[in-house]
Nucleic acid binder design. Structure first.
Lengths: 221, 221
DNA sequence: CTTCCACGATGAGCAGGCGCATGGGGGCCA
DNA sequence: TGGCCCCCATGCGCCTGCTCATCGTGGAAG
């Protein structure tokens, strides 16, 4: 389950991302409205958390532009209380829900889950079966045959990326971008490390290395 | 999936071409605006990456000219940050998206893919069938009949060039430019070497030599 | 028809890089 | 404070990419 957070207050963005990641979501963060629009328009997210006051392009316009372009991704708007912006306006532009700052963290999580549930992309209901593997994205559980395989958060996130694009080659850069922060400037070796542990836990033949290109999760034919 | 990069900074152009090639795109590079216009007008590209500051003819005019001539190829503009040129102007002339220098490489790739996806020319699902051969760009996979043929990155890139222009004669110089770098200064014999290994893996009759001109991938009739 | 030459094909070999495994340190949570 | 997870560093092995040398072959000229 992939979330995009568009929020320029770095501290807030960071804590939201942390919390939601801990909840088992794959979270990307951008700090600029226009950038947010572009990322969301790629269509790879299940939900967008969108602040209104943003540099580059404000949240209303981002939201309106997304809807105009035909994207129906659920949008949860974050509005400041100071009255300059109006909640109704947010809903008019096509947001699905809004939250007034300051809000409690549990409320946010609840709203996010509620929106996802409302969409039928049920939080607990996306189960993919790939050969001997069953991946339950909502419950963050993985079954290999009959036995459950315990995975850490990061391990699961990496696996989720591969599962979502099963059969395609996913580059290490893309995995880094999705699982870690897209602005992550670390050693791509991390990805190799996690792939390694995944193979150890799930069997070596599931994840194929495509040298010079990335990894590919074998889809059963 | 064929891209044209119009960018006069040779170093930047080179690194972009490298990366995008590694992503599985067939990339051409030109360093001059007018030249870029001509190539793009030929209509053989799926997307154009267009710098604004260019010798010969600036990016706005190239873009405008293309649109005026009725071409709707997606255009991704590269703008310098110095403020002399305006982002809005770029979008006004008919560009589909823009990116402000300096940009990270992953962002560029994401935008390129997003644009292509938006156009419906699915990035991950371009499968071409040529007689007994099936080439899947997204999965970086080649099937010869029922069996999968493992190819290295370079082998795949050379094959892709030939596949994209199946039935046509492709010169060695062109293959060099596409698969290697524009300014590659090595032994042209490399191409022969790779054609040789491809023949070994895929069967000798698939790639015909046209003496003095290049190679031609036999298209099924 | 023969001969010669230039272009192309192919195999061997080398160097560098990519991917993998492993161990250790640091931080967060119980 | 202890344990687990995450990240980083290092070393190693194999594969890939490329060069070079040799052999094959097509085509034109005599």
């Amino acid at each position: 389950m992939r979330l995009l957070i568009v929020e320029d207050e770095k501290r807030l963005a960071l804590s939201l991302a942390r919390g939601l990641t801990a909840e088992g979501f794959a979270v990307d963060v951008v700090h600029d409205g226009l950038e947010g629009l572009h990322r969301a328009a790629e269509g790879a997210y299940d939900l967008v958390v969108l602040d209104i006051m943003l540099p580059g392009m404000n949240g209303y316009r981002v939201c309106a532009a997304l809807r105009a372009a035909g994207h129906d991704v659920p949008i949860l708007m974050l509005t400041a209380k100071d009255g300059e912006y109006d909640e109704a306006e947010g809903l008019d532009t096509g947001a699905d829900d809004y939250l007034t700052k300051p809000f409690s963290y549990v409320v946010l999580v609840a709203r996010v889950k509620a929106l996802l549930r409302r969409r039928g992309t049920g939080v607990g209901s996306s189960v993919r079966t790939l050969g001997p593997l069953r991946v339950d994205t909502g419950a963050r559980r993985v079954l290999h045959g009959e036995t459950e395989v315990p995975l850490t958060t990061k391990e699961f996130a990496v696996l989720e990326q591969l599962v979502v694009r099963a059969g395609e080659v996913v580059s290490k850069a893309e995995i880094l971008e999705h699982v870690w922060d897209f602005a992550y400037e670390g050693d791509p070796n991390i990805v190799e490390v996690y792939v390694s542990t995944l193979r150890k836990k799930l069997g070596a033949e599931l994840i194929r290395t495509v040298r010079g290109a990335g990894y590919r999760l074998e889809a059963p034919r």
